[in-house]
Design a protein around this nucleic acid. Structure first.
Lengths: 200, 200
DNA sequence: CCTGTATTTTAGTAATTGCTAAAATACAGG
DNA sequence: CCTGTATTTTAGCAATTACTAAAATACAGG
């Protein structure tokens, strides 16, 4: 058994480049030729050989996104309190969606909100990932209520939906050109809705 | 001078049908063939003759949207108080983005957040319209402060950005499958940030 | 009926789409 | 050097993209 011809490109670097393109142009606005060009792959067959088809590459790119530019999301949940987690999540979003080193906004939001029937699976993948984020936040808030971090009368589901809506709205604002400072201001306002435990 | 061959389709009906397609599939996910099929126009040249090119048709469709399914936005500004206006705007969004008679969400948000260079003008058109909506709200809130509807210490720009963010987040939520009731709940929460005039 | 006009229809353009079969190539191990 | 393996390269697929020139058609007014 042997090794075969070596890859002419680095898989992770190529995924990062593909991420940039999908992020900036969305799933349907991105052509395979855009990808090969950006990824440093000279011919389409090499791309298909390494990453499957466009749809499968998109999923790999989303995973790469979650581990790279959007890692702050997972890390936000490491905060000791639910409030600190939400703050880290939203202020992290304000930073990440305006990072000059990346396209503006969030690929999970702008990657494919509306699309042709041919791209439905990509859209569904994005919808599922947004829903998963909201679910994680919901569970965190439920735990926070059990632990007494927030009042017993609070609705964790509604609160999770509210902060998720802020997150997604911030992403749209960023895509539209809002500045980082403006986004942090929005987040500060949104956080004033945090249900404080009435002083005992 | 004479009349020429009569149109085989109604322009307004055709625009409504085109709106549905662009709304559901976005600018770049919509092909001319999708449009002619939905609009009841048998051949592409008739479409180009009547509406110009794809880009120009898209703009006409956005105007039709503003006068039709999104008329509630303009009408919200007719409310006597700024608070009532924002409430009408956001609760109207909760209803409009979940209207079973139309695609979910808001075409101005999901029509083209990220796109290929070829669709940049459509994306810019959408960005400009969202910015115009935010500007209208900002001016309304500035007037509200002058009139004493909201405290003198309030920041109308930040407030306008906040409510616009809610609006856009609601649109994303709707596109992702949130129910009408859930969206109204989000709006109710968002409205609790309204700056009340301290009781004199 | 004839003319002028504005539409529809026919037939097409060049370019691009996502994708692939088959051949050429470059390495590792023996 | 030879074999096996995994890649790259070449060449191409059928389908679709936005769009258009030119001819056919259907009406109004005279």
């Amino acid at each position: 058994m042997a090794g075969g011809r070596p890859r002419s490109f680095d898989s992770d670097v190529a995924l990062d480049r593909a991420l940039e393109v999908f992020w900036r142009q969305g799933y349907e606005g991105t052509a395979i030729s855009d990808l090969t060009k950006a990824m440093g792959i000279s011919n389409a067959p090499s791309l298909y050989n390494a990453f499957g088809n466009k749809e499968q590459l998109f999923v790999k790119v989303l995973d790469r996104y979650a581990e790279g530019p959007a890692r702050y999301i997972r890390e936000a949940f490491d905060q000791p309190t639910a409030r600190a987690a939400v703050e880290a999540l939203l202020h992290g979003a304000a930073d990440a969606t305006t990072d000059p080193g990346h396209p503006r906004g969030c690929i999970t939001v702008q990657g494919g909100l509306a699309c042709s029937p041919a791209a439905e699976s990509a859209r569904d993948e994005l919808t599922a990932r947004r829903a998963a984020g909201e679910a994680a936040l919901r569970e965190r808030l439920q735990r926070a209520r059990t632990r007494g971090e927030i009042p017993a009368g609070t609705d964790p589901d509604g609160l999770a939906r509210y902060f998720t809506t802020i997150y997604q709205g911030v992403a749209v604002q960023a895509a539209g050109g809002a500045t980082r400072e403006q986004l942090h201001g929005i987040v500060d306002m949104a956080m004033t809705l945090w249900p404080e435990q009435p002083a005992a």
